[in-house]
Structure formats: structure tokens, C-alpha cells
Amino acid sequence: FHVTIHVGDITFHIHGVSEEEVKKLEELVRRGADWREIKKTIEEIEK
């Protein structure tokens, strides 16, 4: 999957994300995680 996440003024683009990881990111966004937490999760996914 290709994912784009907008957190305030920050936009993250992630490529090659599995469905499971998409759900993890959706959950973070849904519970209102700040951009640092989302960035950390994205960095883990990209490894």
C-alpha cells in the first residue's frame, strides 16, 4: 500500500506498507497520536 498521513502541517508519505501496518497507523491517527509517535512508527515500518 501507499499511505499518506497528514498531521497538522506535516505530511508523511510511506510506500510498501502492509495491510497490518496500515491498520496500526490508522489506529494511531484515530487516537490522536502526535506526529513524533507517528514518525517513530513509520521509521519502524520502513526498516
Rank of each mutant, 00 (worst) to 15 (best):
F1M: 08
F1S: 07
F1G: 07
H2F: 12
H2T: 15
H2W: 15
H2V: 14
V3A: 05
V3D: 01
V3E: 01
V3C: 09
V3Y: 13
V3L: 12
V3Q: 02
T4N: 03
T4Q: 04
T4S: 07
T4L: 07
T4R: 04
T4I: 11
I5R: 00
I5E: 00
I5K: 00
I5W: 02
I5G: 02
I5N: 00
I5H: 00
I5M: 05
I5S: 00
H6N: 07
H6S: 11
H6A: 08
H6I: 14
H6C: 09
H6V: 13
H6K: 13
H6Y: 08
H6W: 11
H6L: 10
V7N: 04
V7T: 05
V7K: 03
G8P: 01
G8H: 03
G8V: 02
G8T: 02
G8Q: 06
D9Q: 14
D9L: 13
D9W: 15
D9S: 14
D9E: 12
D9H: 14
D9C: 15
I10G: 02
I10P: 00
I10H: 15
I10L: 11
T11E: 03
T11Y: 08
T11L: 04
T11P: 01
T11A: 04
T11R: 02
F12W: 13
F12G: 00
F12P: 00
F12L: 04
F12Y: 14
F12I: 05
H13P: 00
H13C: 08
I14L: 14
I14D: 00
I14K: 01
I14P: 00
I14M: 09
I14Y: 04
H15K: 08
H15Y: 15
H15M: 07
H15A: 06
H15D: 05
H15T: 09
H15P: 01
H15E: 06
H15G: 04
G16K: 04
G16A: 10
G16P: 04
G16I: 11
G16M: 11
G16H: 13
G16Q: 05
G16V: 14
V17I: 13
V17R: 03
V17W: 10
V17C: 07
V17T: 03
V17D: 02
V17M: 09
V17Y: 14
V17S: 03
S18R: 08
S18N: 09
S18C: 03
E19I: 11
E19R: 06
E20N: 10
E20L: 12
E20W: 15
E20R: 08
E20F: 13
E20H: 11
E21K: 05
E21I: 14
E21Y: 15
E21C: 09
E21R: 03
E21P: 01
V22T: 05
V22E: 02
V22A: 13
V22W: 15
V22R: 11
V22C: 07
V22Y: 14
K23D: 06
K23H: 11
K23G: 07
K23W: 14
K23T: 10
K23M: 13
K24H: 10
K24S: 08
K24F: 10
K24T: 10
K24E: 06
K24Y: 09
K24C: 05
L25Y: 02
L25C: 01
L25M: 03
L25G: 00
E26H: 13
E26K: 12
E26Y: 15
E26C: 13
E26G: 08
E26W: 15
E26P: 00
E27H: 08
E27L: 14
E27M: 14
E27A: 14
E27G: 09
E27Y: 12
E27I: 10
L28C: 02
L28Q: 04
L28D: 01
L28R: 02
L28V: 06
L28W: 05
L28G: 00
V29H: 03
V29L: 13
V29P: 00
V29G: 02
V29R: 05
V29K: 05
V29M: 14
R30W: 10
R30G: 05
R30M: 12
R30D: 07
R31E: 05
R31I: 07
R31Y: 06
R31V: 05
R31S: 09
R31K: 10
R31Q: 09
R31G: 08
R31P: 01
G32W: 11
G32H: 07
G32M: 06
G32D: 03
G32P: 02
G32K: 06
G32T: 03
G32I: 02
G32A: 06
A33K: 03
A33V: 06
A33P: 02
A33T: 05
A33Y: 02
A33N: 02
A33Q: 02
D34M: 04
D34G: 13
D34I: 02
D34K: 10
D34R: 11
D34L: 05
D34T: 14
D34Y: 06
W35G: 03
W35S: 04
W35V: 08
W35F: 08
W35Q: 04
W35N: 02
R36D: 12
R36S: 15
R36V: 10
R36A: 10
R36W: 14
E37M: 04
E37S: 07
E37I: 08
E37R: 02
E37P: 01
I38R: 01
I38H: 01
I38V: 07
I38S: 00
I38D: 00
I38T: 01
I38A: 01
K39N: 05
K39L: 13
K39E: 08
K39P: 00
K39F: 14
K39D: 03
K40N: 10
K40W: 13
K40A: 13
K40E: 12
K40I: 08
K40G: 07
T41A: 13
T41R: 11
T41L: 15
T41K: 08
I42E: 00
I42R: 01
I42N: 00
I42H: 01
I42L: 12
I42V: 08
I42K: 01
I42T: 01
E43S: 06
E43P: 01
E43T: 06
E43Y: 09
E43N: 07
E43I: 10
E43Q: 10
E43M: 09
E43H: 08
E43C: 11
E44I: 06
E44W: 07
E44Q: 10
E44N: 06
E44H: 08
E44Y: 06
E44A: 09
E44F: 06
I45Q: 02
I45T: 03
I45V: 04
I45N: 02
I45E: 01
I45M: 11
I45C: 05
E46S: 12
E46G: 11
E46R: 09
E46H: 11
E46T: 14
E46P: 05
E46Y: 14
E46C: 15
K47N: 10
K47I: 09
K47S: 13
K47M: 13
